[in-house]
C-alpha cells in the first residue's frame, strides 16, 4: 500500500507535468486538453454522487447545460461576462447549477437505485426539451454562437491562456472535492453509500446529506458548463443530450468511481480515444462500445482499481473478484 501522502504527491506532480507539457505540444493538443479538463469537472461531479454517495445520476448534463446556456445567453443578449464580469458569470453558473439541483433533488433523492436513475434521466430530458424548445432564449436547434472569449487584461482568446485558466479551475475543483470527501460530511456520505439504514438508525438525516451532495454536484456541473461554453464558443441542445450524461458516467466508471482522479483519467481516455480514432477510422463507435463492455466486465473498479485487482489475483483469486462484485449499487 502506498501511503496517502505519496499518492497526493504523485497526483500533484502529474498535474504540474501536464500543465507544463501540453502548452508546448501544438495548439490542437492544447484545445483538446482544455475540452477534456472542462468535461472532467463534470465527470468529477458525477463521481461525487456515484463514487462517494452511491447515487448514479443519468441527468448530470442538465446542470452542465444550464451553466453553458447561462454563459451564452448573458454574453450574446446582454454582453455580460466578456470582461472582469466573467468571474461573476462563473459564480452565477455555479449558483444556477446548485439552484436547479436543489429543485430536482426534491423529486429525485427520495427514489433509490434504478428509480433514481430513471427520474434523473427524465429530469435531464426536461432540460433538454427546454433548450430545444425555448427558441427566443436558447436559439432552439441552431443554438447560440458566442463572439470570442472574455478579455480582462488576460486575453482568454489565446488558447494557451485559456488552457491555464481551465486548468486552474480543474485543479481547484479537484482539491475542493478532495477536501469535501475527506471531511466529516464526506465520511458520512460514504457511510450512507455503504449502509444507509444503519446511518439512519445512528440518527443521521441521510436524505439531507444526499440532498446537499446532489446540490454541490449540481454546482460543479454548472461550473463545467460555463467553461465548456467558452471552450467551444457555441452552445446547442446537443450539449444537454442524454449521451452527455451517460458518457460522464462511463468516464467515472472507466477511471474508477470514488477516486476523483479516476474521473479525470477516464475523461482523458474517452476524449483521446474518440479524437484519435475518429480521425483514423469510420468505425470508432465499435471501440467506444467495446470500452464500455470491457470496462464493465473486467474492470468494475476502473483503471484505478487495477492495483487492487492484481493484489487479489495474488491472494486467492475468485473470492477477491466476488468481493468486488458485491459492492452495493
Amino acid at each position: 500500500m502506498i501511503s496517502q501522502n505519496v499518492k497526493i504527491l504523485i497526483v500533484a506532480v502529474c498535474l504540474l507535468a501536464f500543465a507544463y507539457i501540453v502548452p508546448q505540444s501544438g495548439s490542437f493538443v492544447v484545445l483538446l486538453a482544455t475540452r477534456a479538463m472542462a468535461f472532467a469537472i463534470l465527470a468529477m461531479s458525477v463521481d461525487l454522487l456515484l463514487g462517494f454517495t452511491g447515487m448514479s445520476s443519468m441527468g448530470q448534463a442538465a446542470y452542465f447545460g444550464v451553466g453553458a446556456y447561462l454563459t451564452a445567453v448573458l454574453a450574446t443578449k446582454f454582453h455580460f461576462g466578456m470582461g472582469w464580469d466573467f468571474w461573476l458569470v462563473v459564480v452565477m453558473g455555479i449558483l444556477l447549477g446548485c439552484a436547479l439541483a436543489s429543485l430536482f433533488g426534491l423529486f429525485a433523492i427520495r427514489a433509490g437505485g434504478v428509480y433514481f436513475l430513471m427520474i434523473t434521466l427524465a429530469l435531464g430530458q426536461c432540460v433538454w426539451g427546454l433548450a430545444y424548445r425555448w427558441n427566443s432564449l436558447t436559439g432552439g436547434d441552431n443554438g447560440i454562437n458566442m463572439s470570442g472569449r472574455p478579455n480582462f487584461g488576460l486575453d482568454l482568446g489565446n488558447e494557451v491562456t485559456f488552457f491555464y485558466l481551465v486548468f486552474a479551475f480543474f485543479a481547484v475543483s479537484l482539491i475542493a472535492l478532495f477536501v469535501l470527501v475527506r471531511s466529516t460530511f464526506g465520511r458520512s456520505l460514504a457511510g450512507i453509500r455503504e449502509r444507509e439504514l444503519r446511518m439512519q438508525i445512528l440518527g443521521y438525516n441521510t436524505w439531507l446529506h444526499k440532498y446537499i451532495a446532489f446540490i454541490i454536484a449540481g454546482g460543479f456541473g454548472g461550473l463545467a458548463g460555463v467553461l465548456w461554453a467558452h471552450t467551444n464558443g457555441h452552445v446547442s441542445p446537443e450539449t444537454v443530450v442524454l449521451t452527455t450524461s451517460v458518457d460522464s458516467l462511463l468516464m467515472v466508471v472507466l477511471g474508477g468511481a470514488g477516486t476523483l482522479v479516476g474521473a479525470a483519467i477516464g475523461t482523458a481516455i474517452v476524449f483521446g480515444l474518440r479524437e484519435f480514432l475518429s480521425t483514423l477510422v469510420p468505425w470508432w463507435q465499435y471501440a467506444l462500445g467495446g470500452v464500455y463492455v470491457l470496462t464493465i466486465l473486467y474492470l468494475p473498479m476502473g483503471l484505478m482499481g487495477i492495483p487492487s485487482r492484481f493484489r487479489q489475483r495474488t491472494q486467492g483469486k475468485d473470492e477477491g473478484a466476488k468481493k468486488l462484485a458485491t459492492k452495493p449499487s
Partner: peptide, 21 residues
C-alpha cells in the same frame, strides 16, 4: 470477469455499450 449481477449502474453501462455496438 466480474459478474454484473444486480448492480444497476453496471447493467446500464454494459447494455449501453452493446447498444452502441
Amino acid at each position: 470477469i466480474v459478474p454484473v449481477d444486480t448492480d444497476v449502474l453496471r447493467q446500464v453501462l454494459l447494455t449501453v455499450g452493446f447498444a452502441f455496438l
